[in-house]
Write a protein that binds this DNA or RNA. Sequence first.
DNA 1: ATCGTCATTTGT
DNA 2: CAAATGACGATC
Length: 683
Amino acid sequence: MTTRVPDGPSEQLTLLEGARRRAPRRSVAEPPPLADVRPVARVAVDVPLPHLDRPFDYSVPADLDAAAQPGVRVRVRFAGRLVDGFLLERSEQTEHAGRLTRLAKVVSTEPVLTPAIAALSRAVADRYAGSIADVLRLAVPPRHARAEAAAPAEPTQPPPRPVPGGWADYDGGGAFLDALYARATPRAVWSALPGPRWPAEVATAVATTLAAGRGAVVVVPDLRDLARVDTALLAALGPDQHVVLTADLGPEKRYRRWLAARRGVRRVVVGTRAAMFAPVADPGLFVVWDDGDDLHAEPRAPYPHVREVLALRAAHESAGLLVGGHSRTAEGAALVASGWARSLTASRQRVRASAPQVQVAGDDDELAGDAGARAARLPSLAWRTAREGLRRGPVLVQVPRRGYLPGLACGECRRPARCTTCHGPLGTAAGRGTPACAWCGRPAKSWTCPRCEGHRLRATAVGAVRTAEELGRAFPGTVVRHSGGDTVLATVPDEPALVVATPGAEPVAAGGYAAALLLDGWAMLSRPDLRVDEEALRRWLAAAALVRPSGDGGAVVVVADAEIPAVQALVRWDPATFAERELAERAALHLPPAAAVASLTGSAAALGQFLAAAQLPGSAEVLGPVAVASRAPGDDATERLIVRVPRTQGRELAAALHAAAGVRSAHKDAGSLRVQIDPSELA
DNA sequence: ATCGTCATTTGT
DNA sequence: CAAATGACGATC
């Protein structure tokens, strides 16, 4: 039903007040007129309540007619108070049966919410069972008036199409670039060759897109990768073509650069997670590098992931997508398996020519004869490889981060233990009692390891982490550098030195490392996380990719059980096949990404109400609840519930959860409750 | 937070 | 039986 626009009650109130103040005059003054055409403004109000997650209509006073354009920030009276909002569209009519309140104010005439980002934000909210207000807070940075007023720079001419460069090494690489240049929508999951060349390849893909007259967005996990891509883009595109966007720029710089993209002055945006929503005009390509890095998971509601957001954008905005990394996630493999994206890998010959030689040293192999090496618990092969490498250049030593890992593993083969019923991770609540599943809560009374048939369980705590000093003593007279924690080095000089780094903090050596040792593989492989194997391989490949090719003497030793598939994938340098296998395994166990999983955290009462209101898809499995550590001390006992459905029902699950959250918030039910779809950490 | 609606209580 | 009060729910 639609009605003509009546005038709102708020100005009548004002009139009454005015009349009372002046005199008991009976004459009713005309209210200021409304806009002649499209007098209705559809507004997304900034309230996070799920049951208010829809547009609200306001009338447009004539004096705001010109300023009240789609995309501008507005202030409106909502439920008695002034709230911020975005004007989504102007309309002739309203669906609303009652009277419309007038727009209180147009904050700025800058149309910050483009139609594309508005539609994307709705899609992201739907995907993650969240409210559009939460997504808009992530997608549109806070306004900064000075940045808005600054004179806009001139748009620049795009550079000519570059030569394919390194893309010729990938099967289908040339076709991918051709499709970008033809303004088509190529989608690829790319396993990059080892070495320092990937930023240049990203830059070539971006430059090709730009030459075709379209923009691009590139998202990398951290500032060190960002610096590399920034340098490569500058080389490929020249100055003034791209902007770098990060969350830590400060409000003015951040808004200024963001506006440069929105206004079409810059066609290319590169940045960390915050850049995933960047409003590039006519985008032709979205790139995410190293999508397995957990920095790509947004920690604020509704917890969207960069890869998923960029995939949605590619589909919505008819652009290409490039999901790249040295490794490959099961999610990447799923994009390929579904036929939506193609796999970009180099030939085996190319891989062999670029990769270092990788060897495995077992946990129980003989330790080196040298006293220092024995003290550092270095297997003989690892010690010899490092000593030999130190004659020719820097040697990288990757050691897992120190930390307590409250999980359980098989006492025989040390693989993480899973629930025999729902395949969730096993643990012991508060460190005592019977081991039980962390998802469904079933006690694991008689457990049998599916891999080695063992029956014993052991806690997976990483105690003894080797220190840089300890390792240094195994190589007397060698310079030891350390990167990790508070002191992360971006680069190290091209000279013999032992470079001890934690995963993710490995510096780049300009000429490549002569060798690398990947220590304590068992610790990497026994973390109580669903994605342990994928994550271990990702970290190993990232480190090994910094080592010279085997032809130049580059050698890697990983200390781990050689029979584990992730270790074999490293030796063969074949992340694509590993990811396929991982995907198949997860499908068999009903784990992501074959399943869509939601984690619901809150008080027992809140979870109960929520579940009662939720109309879950018929295929939904509800696991738990189990008690978890409360987020704030003094909170009510916190419980967690896992709900999973086959991936094909992911949309229905998200919709059902959002609707149930709406029922709860409309009832003003007590207790907070967090809904997370496909959480990055599922332990 | 504020306003309107509707049910219930209270005063005559 | 009308006016006053209060609980509730929507919020344009």
